[in-house]
Design a protein around this nucleic acid. Structure first.
Length: 510
RNA sequence: GGCGCGUUGGUCAAUCGGCUAAGACGCCUCCCUUUCACGGAGGAAUGACGGGUUCGAUUCCCGUACGUGCUACCA
């Protein structure tokens, strides 16, 4: 049987990094097994629908290089891939469950249910469930009888369809990560399968669609474990037990400080992204920063996520997509959740920048240079990138670390020159600049030789002059070798910066 | 509260009964570098607790503690 896996998000907002990891594991598993990876949109809750979220999710997958084989956009043999467009299909299966007695109609209003929860709760903290203990107290087809039920339905009374959970049955499932897990069915409530608006809930839809779409392996977050017995029972009641996918409940990604699921809130609070790409809430217009816009390379982002909860048993941490496909195994995924470490995420990106060729880096850095407000050309950028990539961790660093190649910088740290400035140094730079004006060559070796020569002539040590020269060219105490910078920015610009600096320094001395 | 899941340094983690408990991030020291980085060499830092099983438990079992998830006509 062909391996088919699916990622089934609900289009309600930004794509969380945990979601991307789920996609990744799906994708790797599909590729490794020559199977198919499907994107299915779970938009059965119309009250939570968010404009643009579906498109955004697909854009994120494209950026990460994790494109589905079948999706609402691409189509496929099992279309449609949006649950809202599959609405009618679910009714048929709900009816099957109704006919076999595994589900029933319920007419209770939200208020009635609320009252029941309060009236029958066991202690002051816990509300009662709609389950075998309480269902015979409610208004449903079990208590009303066939005739009354038919009447209410024909009159157009709103109703839901609930699963009738059995009592005292142990439901067992084998999870690819956790092994055997058992639940007592008596403790699970009669979950709603079909809502009053005619839409299915996740519970019905996931089972029906996984069956119809011939899903063989289902990966989802650990938060679904408690409702897994409902799904297993549904597969059984619908008569598809032998076709049930193999489950794998992935561990959660936790916040770096304290415990608990990592949320968008934590990112805002601690200053790092949680979403793959920028997300703007169409209602509030609030924008949340994403990894892409913060300057991560998609390969680094993906590699980092792969390692968050999985490793191949060796010390290797850097994997290309091909290596991941070859080496990934669901059995080696951790059971416990992992705290997200932004420092480590940055380390991955730094590694990827180092191993990427300068031409590609120039392409990636280009938008950030443009954002800095200067005009340049690709050839220059390629050279600059080669000179500064060592000290770049995120893509915007190419601007931070290289802006002075494209614009005359402000002498932010001229204080460092002033502290030890004197006439002797002033004269050195004036004289050397004059010499440079007449230089017949322009390369760092010749320049450094002449610099040394002049220093000696003025009775100065090279070491006393290097820092002032750097600040004249760069504006601060950072950047690659000064003579390499001078060579790249050219004679005219170098002289301009020296002379300008000299003008600024002179008055301070008098 | 109930149920499920989990628990090796600050963080990610290896180990599938032999451990003097890898490696990476971060941190600290030194070297390299007349800047900042990169790089190199060192360092501090770990098996939640209590019982078993065993010649031997980080590894297997059982408790306890702690954490976390779920307990909706949300996914």
């Amino acid at each position: 049987m062909k391996v088919r896996v699916r990622f089934a998000p609900s289009p309600t907002g930004g794509l969380h990094l945990g979601g991307v990891r789920t996609v990744l594991y799906n994708y790797l598993f599909a590729r490794a097994n020559k199977g198919e990876f499907i994107l299915r949109i779970e938009d059965t809750d119309q009250t939570r629908f968010v404009e643009g979220a579906e498109k955004y999710i697909m854009d994120c997958l494209a950026w990460c290089g994790l494109e589905p084989d079948e999706s609402p956009l691409k189509g496929g043999p099992f279309a449609p891939y949006r649950q809202s467009e599959r609405k009618e299909m679910y009714h048929h299966y709900a009816q099957m469950l109704l006919d076999s007695g595994h589900a029933y109609y319920a007419f209770d209003t939200p208020e009635e249910i609320e009252k029941m929860r309060k009236d029958h709760r066991k202690d002051e903290y816990t509300n009662a469930q709609y389950d075998h203990n309480t269902r015979m107290l409610m208004r449903n087809s079990l208590t009303l009888g066939q005739e009354e039920t038919a009447r209410l339905i024909s009159e157009g009374t709103p109703y839901v369809v609930r699963i009738k959970m059995p009592e005292h049955t142990t439901v067992t499932l084998t999870d690819m990560i956790r092994g055997e897990i058992s639940f007592d069915s008596s403790l699970v409530d009669d979950k709603v399968l079909l809502k009053a608006d005619g839409m299915p809930t996740y519970h019905l839809a996931v089972v029906v669609d996984d069956y119809l779409m011939e899903i063989t392996h289902a990966f989802r977050g650990e938060e679904w474990l408690p409702s897994a017995p409902v799904h297993v029972l549904l597969w059984e009641y619908l008569g598809w037990k032998d076709r049930m996918p193999q489950w794998a409940h992935l561990p959660l990604i936790l916040k770096p400080d304290g415990n608990g699921k990592l949320s968008k809130r934590d990112g805002d609070r601690l200053g790092f992204p949680v979403f793959a790409m920028n997300w703007t809430d169409p209602k509030t217009n609030e924008e949340t920063r994403g990894f892409r816009e913060m300057g991560f390379m998609p390969q680094a982002f993906v590699n980092m996520l792969a390692m968050l909860g999985w490793n191949d048993g060796t010390a290797q941490e850097l994997f290309s997509m091909e290596e991941l496909i070859a080496k990934f195994s669901i059995e080696r995924v951790h059971k416990g959740g992992a705290k997200f470490d932004f420092e480590k995420a940055k380390w991955f990106n730094h590694q990827y920048i180092q191993k990427t060729d300068n031409e590609t880096l120039a392409e990636l850095a280009w938008p950030f240079i443009v954002e800095g407000g200067v005009v340049t050309n690709k050839e220059l950028l390629v050279k600059v990138v080669g000179l500064i990539k060592d000290r770049c961790t995120l893509l915007p660093d190419f601007w931070e670390q290289g802006h002075f190649f494209f614009e005359t910088p402000e002498l932010r740290e001229k204080g460092a020159i002033l502290e030890k400035w004197n006439d002797q140094k002033q004269q050195f730079f004036a004289a050397w600049a004059a010499e440079l004006t007449n230089a017949s060559t322009w390369n760092q070796a010749d320049m450094e030789a002449s610099f040394n020569e002049h220093a000696t002539k003025h009775g100065l040590k090279k070491g006393e002059l290097m820092l002032p020269f750097r600040i004249m060219l760069v504006g601060g105490k950072y950047g690659p070798g000064v003579f390499a910078i001078a060579e790249l920015i050219g004679k005219e610009e170098t002289l301009k910066r020296i002379n300008q600096a000299l003008e600024q320094l002179l008055p301070n001395q008098l």
